[in-house]
Design a binder for these strands. Structure first.
Length: 1125
RNA sequence: GCCCAGAUGGCGGAAUUGGUAGACGCGCUAGACUCAAAAUCUGGUUCUCGCAAGGGAGUGCAGGUUCGAUUCCUGUUCUGGGCACCA
């Protein structure tokens, strides 16, 4: 009986389907194991051999765990929302749901071929309303939650935040949001719905804000960074610019610390943990405020520091409240004074010393006060006088008006102020004001202001190098630039900023050419008053830190290069550690040229500087994260609708009973107006004020692993007792491309659902393994483009295309000079032409390297490197009359390893291989290719070897001529040794997912049993169980032939017994100076002295020792012997 | 540019903890069976010098640690993945 894999596989696949062999029950009494593959996107291109690699690995692991007695959940489904379907819809008018469904059906058919043990009754699709109902539901939970830093977890806003506001105002969130003004409980209650909504929005875990996107007007869409190339769209080459759009975000930054902490509790590779850690990018450093001056400003000395430091906090809060409760007259005056209308910047509600001035012209030392009538009362008069006197001592002059004057005689009032200002300007000597703080901004840091009231706040992780700062670099998109640029530099700065606008973030960072532009402004080193030029350059991104860096060229490579490029001076604070040629990022130098920290070690200096900065109120310690909040909306159609209505500018969540909010029918998938998504075109949608953005691709995939546990539940996304049972995913397998996107987001969702009490665990994946990519091995042919100069009106289409074999092309190219074919090579080539194809001999061919084009050819019509020329002619119509110049009678192609992709014609379809060799062979071969984690190019050739192995296994049971040859005899020691060696090896290998070496182990076992002529059931049957995860069909077939009545899928994995492997001797390798010279056999319990004596007497060893003394004798029991001479 | 990974025969890869480099398979090659081919079986196959016995070199490259390094350390080159709207 022959190994008829087609029949066998068909039979068992049918049987297993009929018996529901892969159906998984939520049977809480059994130990569970959860094996998961990363969610596939059902692409239209279908499956190629790279896709199943991970699925086969997990399939083997799942089947193995089942044999080990676990209740194994191994589900599959589809991440079915996505851009390709939408793009296809735009181009072909086909509803994405329809094309997606077709793709899924195709996908499924291909998967079924390979014999996976997925429980298909648990399949999920993110684009099904029954699924995205729960995606929307979870979104609402995020929307309704905030992160409470005192309990360190997410809580419902209605449970803890609003009650706190109602009870004690904004106390609970003090300092959390820079731009939020404190309020009292009463104020909270008096706020309008919009005001309350705006405040709450700043705390929601799913929130709305404005973000900058790559906008392509011509395409009417937002583009990803990699879709932007040199400032134009990859598709179509249209211009791209930055655009500010309202977007939804997830407040992942609140979870930065917990996402880091969680990494310590999971079994991910170090590389993966490192990548996530770097992505989160926690750094400890300082924010430092530098005064700025621009030389063309009127004065360089600036009146600042106007408040008494101790009062600053109190004054600030009062000032804020005052500004919120502006009187009519104050507002009128503000409108007339603001924006330099009188030629000078004015501040309102500004603290000066211990007071709050209504309006203050700091440069002119003029304060304007507006009083009600009660100021005329005696008590108030005394108070006012005292204030006037007090401020006078600090050089301020006060002018007063009543509300009445301002309201009814505004012009007069303005005139008076102007006069007073002029007078102040005439006053020559002004005492220098002292104290801290302007109030416009949230932080005391921002209060150090230079001319024009500007300050440069930088974030640095190295405050210790502050005396080495030679220049500042700020991100080109900072609005600050416009305020500080000098007149002389304005044109250059504007030009540079415009250039950067067209560049994607990626391009900006990857750019090797250093570019930048001086703004004309300077920052002042707060410690030594050094003037530091402020530059702008594309390598500094606005999104990180404050968008500004202090450049220390002696200690930072990038800063050093920048300084060299623009010929900026470099201050050496590192002493000998800086060689003047290369920056040295050391943290262990003794500082030099560093004022009060000179001679201090850097680590010590960091502390000194930090406390000094804090003491002076110009800097503070700060923990910074590189990670930004996750953008959670897309201006697209094919995604989950966001269950939010906008009523009078307030986001109102839909009632949970209204879910799912289904996608509407649309006429066109084209984008809406003003950069909005297609949903903005749907009248019925906008009439209901529904959100027109949809969710991004990672929404559905952030929680899908939970849905598999309880896929048909319409009361909850997953019942708590079910998720308690299945718990974490025990093994999660997928590519590293998801390292920071999907994995962080799903970890975030899990943590939030855990905080809110819907889950009992806060890390979704216990063990994560990254699979490598299967790359394509592309094949190329060379086409010669002929140019006939002798016949002017030559019809080229009549000419057959001419293809040259690789060797001949190389021959030509070896004589290549500067990219041109040399005349010698050309003559040679012509002579080849003449001998090979006489009919071309009259043609003259232009000697240009352009004449030869390298074209992709379908790998499926190439055998190794040899092209099947007949198949090639049939491949595409334009090649029907192709002519070939061969070498040794063959057309040899050239090859390159690339990504496997249809456009490169290097995809190999698993269906064809399964059809030719069977699913069992295909599965084993994919594994045999190499370690799961490693990327490797696909090569079909080796599949024969694996197929031969299965046939050889089959022949242990059946002989071609004799039929069944298996026996019931008792196994010998040698046979048992082989069996148990294999049990151990295969079990260990599967556990550590070394699936390729397990295949080798099977081969070794079958080779050994063949050599031993072993046909014994007692040996082969356990071997079949071992093989079941890899080749379930053939294993089941032989299992049944041996007379078993139950399925091998539920057999018990054989137990390894040490006793069969016991050895009493070891054949030791003996080395001289680490070089292996011979082997000598010793008993395992032989003692060192005996071994040393024997070794030194050994003929071969003695020869090497001749005339030498033995310096050392190394004996590692059970391993090796080394003689050192 | 930044972060992560990888590099071993003609090819895919093995060597699990620093201890015989190249298991297993492909390919190639010689042979058996056959009229022949396929299939199957047996032997050989890192390179190099040598008739052989045997020697030398060798895990991207340059160094280092060690009795001993594919394995650890430093530097470097190349390839692949990611860099926030591809999934």
């Amino acid at each position: 009986m022959e190994y008829n894999f087609r029949e066998i596989e068909k039979k068992w696949q049918k049987t297993w389907e009929e018996t529901n062999a892969y159906k998984v029950q939520n049977d809480f009494s059994k130990p569970k194991y959860y094996v998961l593959d990363m969610f596939p996107y059902p692409s239209g291109a279908g499956l190629h051999v790279g896709h199943p690699l991970g699925y086969i690995s997990t399939d083997i692991f799942a089947r193995y765990k089942r044999l080990k007695g676990y209740n194994v959940l191994h589900p599959m489904g589809y991440d079915a929302f996505g851009l390709p379907a939408e793009q296809y819809a735009i181009e072909h008018g086909v509803h994405p749901a329809i094309s997606t469904e077709q793709n899924i059906n195709n996908f499924r058919k291909q998967l079924d071929n390979i014999g996976f043990c997925f429980d298909w009754s648990r399949e999920v699709r993110t684009s099904e309303p029954s699924y995205y109902k729960w995606t929307q539901w979870i979104f609402l939970q995020l929307f309704k939650s905030w992160y409470n830093i005192s309990t360190n977890k997410a809580e419902y806003i209605a449970d803890t935040l609003i009650p706190a506001f109602e009870k004690e105002g904004s106390k609970i969130i003090d300092g959390r949001r820079a731009d939020l003004q404190p309020f009292t409980a009463e104020e909270w209650k008096s706020f309008s719905a919009k005001e309350q909504g705006d405040i709450l929005m700043q705390f929601r875990l799913a929130f709305c804000d404005y973000g900058i996107v790559n906008w392509c007007e011509a395409l009417g869409t937002v583009l990803a960074n990699d879709e932007v190339i040199n400032g134009v769209s990859e598709r179509g080459g249209y211009p791209v610019e930055k655009k500010k759009l309202r977007q939804w975000y997830l407040r992942i930054t609140e979870y930065a610390d917990r996402l880091l902490e969680g990494l310590q509790r999971v079994d991910f590779s170090d590389a993966m943990k490192e990548m996530q850690t770097n992505w989160i990018g926690r750094s400890q450093g300082a924010e430092i405020a530098f005064e700025i001056f621009t030389p063309n400003s009127e004065t360089r000395k600036t009146p600042i520091n106007t408040a008494i430091p101790e009062y600053y906090q109190i004054l600030k809060e009062h000032a804020r409240e005052n500004r919120k409760n502006q009187t009519v007259s104050e507002d009128i005056l503000w409108q007339r004074l603001r924006n330099n209308q009188l030629g000078e910047k004015v501040r309102r509600q500004h603290p000066i010393q211990g007071y709050i001035a209504d309006f203050a012209f700091l440069n002119s030392y003029l304060v304007v006060e507006i009083d009600g009538d009660y100021h005329n009362e005696k008590e108030q008069k005394i108070y006012d006088d005292a204030r006037t006197k007090y401020l006078g001592e600090f050089g301020y002059k006060i002018v007063r008006f009543t509300h009445n004057e301002v309201e009814n005689n505004t012009n007069e009032v303005i005139k008076t102020i102007k006069t007073a200002l002029d007078e102040q300007h005439k006053t020559s000597s002004q005492p220098s004001p002292q104290g801290e703080g302007a109030i416009d901004s949230e932080s005391p840091l921002s209060s150090r202001r230079g001319v024009g009231g500007e300050v440069l706040t930088v974030y640095t992780t190295r405050p210790d190098t502050i005396f080495g700062v030679d220049f500042m670099v700020i991100a080109p998109e900072l609005e600050l630039i416009d305020k500080i640029k000098s007149e002389a530099q304005t044109e250059a700065v504007d030009e540079y900023v415009a250039y950067v606008k067209s560049r994607s973030e990626r391009e900006r960072q990857a750019e090797k050419k250093i570019s930048g532009c001086f703004t004309g402004a300077y920052a002042i080193n707060p410690f030594n008053g050094k003037e530091i030029p402020i530059w702008t350059a594309e390598y500094v991104l606005a999104g990180y830190g404050t968008g500004a860096v202090m450049a220390v060229p002696c200690g930072d490579e990038r800063d050093y290069k920048f300084a060299k490029q623009f010929d900026l001076p470099i201050t050496n604070i590192l002493g000998e550690k800086f060689d003047g040629e290369n920056a040295n990022a050391t943290k262990d130098a003794i500082l030099e040229n560093s004022d009060f920290v000179t001679v201090k070690p850097m680590k010590e200096a960091t502390e000194v500087i930090l406390s000094e900065l804090e003491k002076r109120g110009i800097g503070k310690r700060k923990v910074n994260f590189r990670m930004r909040d996750a953008a959670f909306s897309r201006q697209r159609f094919w995604g989950e609708p966001i269950p939010i209505k906008w009523i009078d500018g307030v986001a109102i969540p839909l009632n949970e009973k209204e879910l799912p909010l289904q996608l509407p029918e649309v006429d066109s998938y084209k984008p809406g107006p003003e950069g909005q998504g297609p949903l903005a075109n749907v009248k019925d949608w906008t009439d209901q004020h529904l959100e027109t953005n949809t969710m991004p691709g990672y929404a559905g995939s952030s929680w899908y692993f939970l849905r598999y546990m309880d896929p048909h539940n319409d009361q909850a996304f997953c019942e708590r007792n079910v998720s308690d049972y299945w718990n974490q995913v025990d093994l999660y397998l997928g590519g590293t491309e998801h390292a920071v996107g999907h994995l962080l987001y799903s970890r975030l969702w899990t943590k939030i659902l855990f905080d809110l009490g819907y889950l009992g665990f806060d890390e979704p994946y216990k063990r994560l393994v990254n699979q490598g990519m299967i790359q394509g091995s592309s094949r190329f042919v060379y086409r010669l483009t002929l140019k006939i100069t002798s016949i002017p009106e030559f019809d080229y289409s009549t000419l057959p295309q001419l293809f040259i074999s690789r060797g001949i092309v190389e021959q030509i190219e070896n004589n290549d000079i500067n990219g041109m074919i040399s005349s010698e090579a050309f003559a040679e080539f012509n002579s080849i032409l003449q001998t090979e194809r006489k009919k071309y001999s009259t043609f003259f061919i232009e000697p240009s390297s352009q004449a030869i084009a390298k074209l992709h050819v379908d790998v499926n019509i190439v055998d190794g490197y040899e092209l099947d020329t007949e198949a090639f002619k049939k491949w595409k119509p334009e090649f029907a009359n192709a002519e070939f110049i061969l070498e040794n009678g063959k057309y040899i192609t050239t090859s390159e390893v690339e990504k496997m992709s249809k456009s490169k014609f290097n995809t190999v379809n698993p269906d064809e291989l399964v059809n030719k060799y069977g699913a069992d062979t295909f599965r084993m071969y994919e594994m045999f290719l190499g370690p799961v984690e490693q990327s490797k190019p696909w090569e079909t050739k080796g599949i024969e070897g694996v197929h031969r192995f299965l046939k050889k296994l089959w022949r242990l049971v059946f002989d071609e001529n004799k039929g069944a040859i298996w026996t019931e005899e008792n196994p010998t020691d040698a046979e048992l040794k082989t069996l148990h060696k294999t049990i151990k090896k295969v079990g260990d290998d599967i556990e550590r997912l070394s699936l390729n070496t397990a295949v080798s182990a099977f081969m070794v076992a079958v080779n050994e049993l063949s050599d031993l002529k072993c046909h014994k059931r007692a040996v082969i049957e356990p071997l079949l169980i071992l093989l079941t995860p890899y080749a379930p069909h053939v294993a089941e077939e032989l299992w049944q032939i041996f007379g078993n009545t139950t399925s091998i899928l539920d057999a018990a994995f054989p137990t390894f017994e040490e006793k069969y492997l016991k050895e009493s001797t070891k054949n030791y390798p003996v080395s001289i100076n680490g070089k292996m010279r011979t082997n000598i056999e010793f008993a395992l319990d032989a003692d060192k002295a005996f071994i040393e004596e024997t070794v030194l007497k050994n003929e071969i060893i003695a020869k090497w020792l001749e005339g030498q003394t033995v310096k050392k004798f190394i004996f590692v029991p059970g391993k090796m012997i080394n003689v050192v001479i």
